[in-house]
Every structure is written in C-alpha cells, then in structure tokens.
Write a protein that binds this DNA or RNA. Sequence first.
DNA 1: TACGTTATGAACTGCTCAGTCCAAAACAAG
DNA 2: CTTGTTTTGGACTGAGCAGTTCATAACGTA
Lengths: 198, 198
Amino acid sequence: MARPRTFDEERALDAAMRAFWVNGYEATSTQDLCDATGLGRSSIYNTFSSKHELFQRALARYIDSMTAGQVEILEDAGRSPMERLRALFARIVDSEFECREDGHSIGCLTVNTTVELAGRDPEAAELLARDLAARLAAISAVIRAGQSGGDISSTRDAGDLARFLNAVIGGMRISAQGGADRAALTAIAETALDSLTR
Amino acid sequence: MARPRTFDEERALDAAMRAFWVNGYEATSTQDLCDATGLGRSSIYNTFSSKHELFQRALARYIDSMTAGQVEILEDAGRSPMERLRALFARIVDSEFECREDGHSIGCLTVNTTVELAGRDPEAAELLARDLAARLAAISAVIRAGQSGGDISSTRDAGDLARFLNAVIGGMRISAQGGADRAALTAIAETALDSLTR
DNA sequence: TACGTTATGAACTGCTCAGTCCAAAACAAG
DNA sequence: CTTGTTTTGGACTGAGCAGTTCATAACGTA
C-alpha cells in the first residue's frame, strides 16, 4: 500500500546510540547522525521526529540492553551472591575495553548523560532516574541475599552498600575514560568487593 | 600610556569557569560567556584568544584551586592519615551541596571534562592527566603513612588503594549529579573509608 | 593639551546548526 | 496500469555559532 523503508530502524538506532555515546549529545550534529546511520535527513526526521527524541530513544535502548545484561548476571540463581557481584564487576571491566574509540574508553552512556544532560534535560533525567532505581534494586537484592547467607557483612544497610557499589562502578567508568588500564580497574573492583566481606 | 582594563581578569575567569562547569564546553556559547563575565566579545577575544583557550585557562584555574585545597587537607600534619582521608571525603560531600544550580549538583569540572572532552581534546586531556597524577600521589602518600602506622591495612598496594579512593570520589560526583542526597553520599564515603581499615 | 596605545562596543562575516519542504521514486492494492 | 500512500534525497530556511573588523573611547605620558 505504500513505499517500504529501505533501512532497519533498530540498526539505525544502534548507530545513532554509538554516535551519541562517543561524542555526547551536544557535539553530535544531525549531519553526524546521517553519516553514522547511513540515512538521509528526511528519513531520520520522518522516523525519529527530532534530534532530541532520537537521543531519548537511543538512551532508552542503551539502558534496556545494558541493564538487562547486568540484571541477568545479578539474578543468576546458579551463582552465590558474591559470585554474582564479582561477575558484574568483571563484565564492567571488560566493557571498558570493548567499548573504545581512538584508543580511549567511551565510558558508559548513562554516566556520560548524567554528567552532560541530567541537570537540564528532564526527559533524560527521568530515564536515568528509572534506570538508577532498577540498578540499585537489583544490587540491593543480591546484597541482602549475601547478608542472609553470611557472605556479606551486615554491619551496613544493603541499600547503602548498593549505592556504594554503584558509585564505584561509575568511578571505574570515569577512571577508564581518564586512561586507567585493565589492572587498575580490576584492582578498584577487587577492593570494592573485598569491603563487602569484612 | 594606554587605556586600562575595566575588569578583573581573574574574576572574569571565575565566571567563565562557572559557566563551563554548569553547562559543559559544547553547550556554553561565546554569548553565554559574555553574559556570565559581563565582558564584551572584543574584551574576551582580546584577553583569552578563543573559546578553547578560555576553557583551558578556566579548567587550569579550577584544578589549581580545587587540588590545592584537597592537597592541603591531605598534607595536614596535625591529623592522622585516616583523619585526613575522612576530612577529604567530608569536603567532597560538602562541595556537592555547595556547588549547585537549579537544585542540582553540578558535580566536578574535572570529572565533567573527563567525560565530555578527554577523548577528543588533547590539551584538556593533558591538564586532566597531570591533575590525576598529583591527586593519586597525594592520596598514595597518606595511605602509605597510614599503612606504616598500622591504621590502614597493608594487604593492598597503596597505589591501588589510592586509585580506589579516587574512583569512589568520582562515583560520588556522578551519584550527586544523579540526585543522591547527603546521607547517601556520606554512606558511600564511610563505606569506602571503612574498607581501608580491615 | 596633544599623542601614542590599548580597550571597548557594535556591526559584521562565513559557516554550521536543527529542522522543513517538495518533487520524484517505490511500492501495494484495485 | 492506475491510484493512493509513504519514503527518499536534495535543496532550502532562519537562527545561532565562533571569530573578525573597525571606529571610537579612555587612559598615561610628555
């Protein structure tokens, strides 16, 4: 009944997400998005309405895929709570050496967006707040399980420990963007995890 | 012998620094810088050459003042190593509630710049690398002192612990920009510091 | 008071930005 | 093959960008 699209919307979204991830929202022009996706301006605006809405969809897609993978690790019933946390941190270290551009880590899109946009973009802030709540809930649950089993110290509230681990993850992302190598990130992760068992 | 300036260069630099701090490099226009400093375009370009050079000077000024204050705390001979680290973290929590705009934390300019520019601005990356090295050196020295005195565990290398604490500081900054309140930041700091004494 | 020098404001430059428009193209359905 | 609907590419728009130019103002000095 009408002319069909010649591109895959999700592939285009992935390409746009990567562009925003590498350079940030402000420094990515609509022309950059055309180049990255291979689409013309008309197709981009016809499909995604505006740069800002495209960014929101890209951020939402990043959050869905990233948090899904991490929650999967955290809910892996085949591993003990501490093993799950260790696996989570191992994945985060790995991701910093998989997601690179020009020899530098590009960090994490949620951290980057928190820094660049959270203070002046309500829609982005909302997506980030929801993601943060989900992450903290998943980490807290694992910590509570570890506390029940005695593997994790109960001297601190599970919620506090979850916020602590989440902050360390963010700090590892910043450290990687600042040039930290794999050994440095691994040592940070081990130090954080060791502190749970004291 | 010639017409004198009607403004104070350092005050102008402070105003520009604040503008970059709140909105980032890309989202701060030269017009914003004129408004923030109260200077005309001619005065800005006559004094600072370009937006990029003004940013470099603003970042350098931020680093000098911030790192100076923190190193002062870390080298305070009147306090024990652990007390110095506690004072450092207390200052960082405080700073997140002093440096705000529209009810949000504006974080730390070095962290913000690491995220926004480190991957594509060699001059900024150089300033950040130098600052990071100085921070890690100062923290490492305190940790070594604490390890000698027995207050800080020697099971981990002082350099690793310094990178860990520095990552936690970065993570606290991100957490604050993500909306964490004072109690949450304090708990993160306490958890990190407690892990040193195990 | 006249001169040399620097600072300043306002107008201006060329360019890039996000977003729009429209004619042509590509299909499905009748 | 025609008709109706959507996609597509390319030209276009007005606004805002970083940076320049220049006439004039404001000073120290002689």
